[in-house]
Amino acid sequence: MSLQFLPKFNLSRHRRWLIIAPPLLFLLVFFLIPFGFALTISFAQTAIHVPPYTDVVSMDAQHRLHVSAHLDNYRYLLTDKVYALSYLYSLKTAFFSTLICLLIGYPMAYAISRTSRSAQSILLLVIILPFWTSFLLRVYALEGIIRENGLLNQALLWLGLIHQPLQLMHTTAAVYVGIIYSYLPFMVLPLFATLEKLDHTLLEASADLGSPPWRAFLDVTLPLSMPGVIAGSMLVFIPAIGEFVIPTLLGGADNLMIGRVLWDEFFGNRDWPVASAVAVVFLVFLVGPIAIYQHYQGKDLEAHA
């Protein structure tokens, strides 16, 4: 076949921009440029007017530009320990949640990839369906299970395993359960996408050469599924760091994740410049993980389609 020599989608260079420009411009204005505003406002000072911060860049009557940038907000982030502690706490929580998601999600994805085609499509639908239902309502539903008179405590009391209801709500454990429960599908789907494409003759070859199954898994399956492991981990890890709903609804006062701190700074203290500085620093930390995710995407998310 000589199809590749046929003319490609040969729109003229100018007409191509009719297709490229609308999404590019929209995302520039409403996704990228906002970060510029956050960066700028992080150098402003709080002020008691609308909007509640001073102008960083202003122009006087003679059309001269004035720049009044302050580093106070960043200095404040360093002096008030709440910020550093909540960053670290968020990182820790997200890391261990991701690890547990991986430990549960990998066998699940592996099991699905080993079933027949028709079973696969049904199981995938079963995994995807919660992803389509409301995130907020799922977190809320979890509360019905783990609260003091919830199903879990009732079941454990009935079985005689405990004599006093466990206090799970408003604890660190509840935050972990919430994150794992909510983000598990994000781990399973990319893992399945890579495991499904695995060439099983490699496993047979490994078995023929005398490898026990666990050895074949470590030598063949695991390395080949690394793109899925990384994509899935990033899909859980990055949003989990900034999680707001789960620590607010399920966690206690000491589960200070950075998302909650940001929310309070914004709506409670109405200190927008400090909130912007927190967001900027947070984003700097996220650039690395997001770049890793970008690198491995394309190998994942096909299962979402």
């Binding site: 590019l24 995302l27 906002p34 956050a38 940001l262 970008q294």
Partner: peptide
């Protein structure tokens, strides 16, 4: 702008909502 477009369609998938929300509010206010 191909690189920018690729980045801008992938980043929102993982970007914590709270960051997107704050930055977009600051844009809208400005």
């Amino acid at each position: 702008g191909r690189f920018a477009l690729t980045a801008m369609v992938n980043a929102p998938l993982v970007m914590p909502e709270i960051i997107t929300g704050i930055t977009q509010l600051l844009l809208l206010i400005s």
